[in-house]
């Protein structure tokens, strides 16, 4: 695999340990260029550790991570030229004014689109002379997004981007991302709890649970194989289903292999599941 064809992100059998605690256990995932990958998981599932390691900010205890084919721990500085990051907790210095922050930021990158950046700032209604710490949480993320996109990154990493954003800000954020996707074919990796938000955007979904990547699948395939089936009474035999749960006077069950599944005759209702419902089923089952 040459660097030109290498996936944007490739984590190979990555284990991350803090002392005796295992945060990520032998995880492998691959994000194809131009695709959108949503990494889901409860708090403490290992997402943040994995993200920090994907960015070369901390080393993996085992396994390798390559961005665009290059090892991220040893090539971090050059790779970051091609990566835009909107972190969960904005890490820009709080006392720094936005305009100074911008000047500093732009001096570190080869590419900088000043017009586009200023346009975005205006759209977000952010005054350049404001101190970064004085901005609202949502505005901080918008500034970080604008800064990140102004450098024309090939990979955009959004770490819980909608946390703390109101509906309008959330909408505008996704609009920006979609525009970038359409215009430049960037690769996007989103970690989030807002499953509804990524449901229409993600090409591929990964679910982390207790440090393990329990699911790594195309969203479409995932949604096509999960169904919630409701019965009037308790079914006697079930093929390859999941836990049977009470529902009203009857019961319901989650089917995870719907295409091969033979529907019993007494099924009252077969309905598709939202990504959120699938997530709960997947992680709840393993709990």
């Amino acid at each position: 695999m040459t660097n030109e064809t290498a996936p944007a992100v490739f984590a190979d059998a990555v284990t991350i340990r803090y002392g005796s605690k295992v945060a990520v256990d032998n995880g492998t995932l691959s994000v194809a260029r131009g695709s959108v990958y949503a990494l889901l998981g409860r708090n403490g599932a290992g997402k943040s550790s994995l993200v920090r390691t994907l960015l070369g900010q901390q080393p993996a205890s085992a396994g390798t991570i390559r961005l665009f084919g290059e090892d991220v721990w040893t090539h971090r500085a050059t790779l970051m030229e091609r990566v835009g990051i909107v972190p969960e907790d904005a890490d820009a210095p709080p006392d720094m004014r936005v305009d100074k922050l911008t000047r500093f930021w732009s001096s570190l990158y080869a590419r900088w689109d000043v017009t586009l950046f200023n346009e975005r700032l205006e759209r977000f209604h952010i005054a350049p002379r404001t101190k970064f710490g004085d901005l609202s949480k949502g505005q901080k993320k918008q500034v970080m997004l604008a800064l990140s996109l102004a450098t024309s990154p090939e990979l955009l990493l959004l770490d819980d981007p909608t946390l703390g954003l109101d509906v309008v800000a959330r909408k505008s954020l996704f609009e920006e991302v979609i525009a970038e996707l359409a215009d430049r074919g960037i690769t996007v990796l989103i970690t989030t709890h807002d499953l509804g938000g990524v449901e229409t955007i993600a090409d591929r979904v990964g679910v982390m649970h207790d440090g393990r990547l329990v699911l790594d699948e195309e969203l479409e395939t995932l949604k096509s194989r999960f169904r919630r089936v409701r019965f009037a009474a308790r079914p006697v035999a079930l093929a390859n289903g999941s836990n049977v749960r009470a529902w009203g006077s009857g019961s319901e069950v989650v089917v995870s292999n719907f295409p091969e599944w033979n529907e019993p005759a007494d099924a009252v209702e077969v309905s598709p599941m939202s990504l959120e419902e699938i997530f709960i089923a997947v992680t709840g089952e393993e709990a």
């Binding site: 960015l55 900010q57 971090r76 030229e81 972190p87 890490d91 820009a92 210095p93 570190l108």
Partner: peptide, 13 residues
């Protein structure tokens, strides 16, 4: 204060 990532997310060594 866990803000070192500000620098390490940039293309600087």
């Amino acid at each position: 204060e866990k803000r070192m990532s500000f620098f390490f997310s940039r293309p600087v060594t």
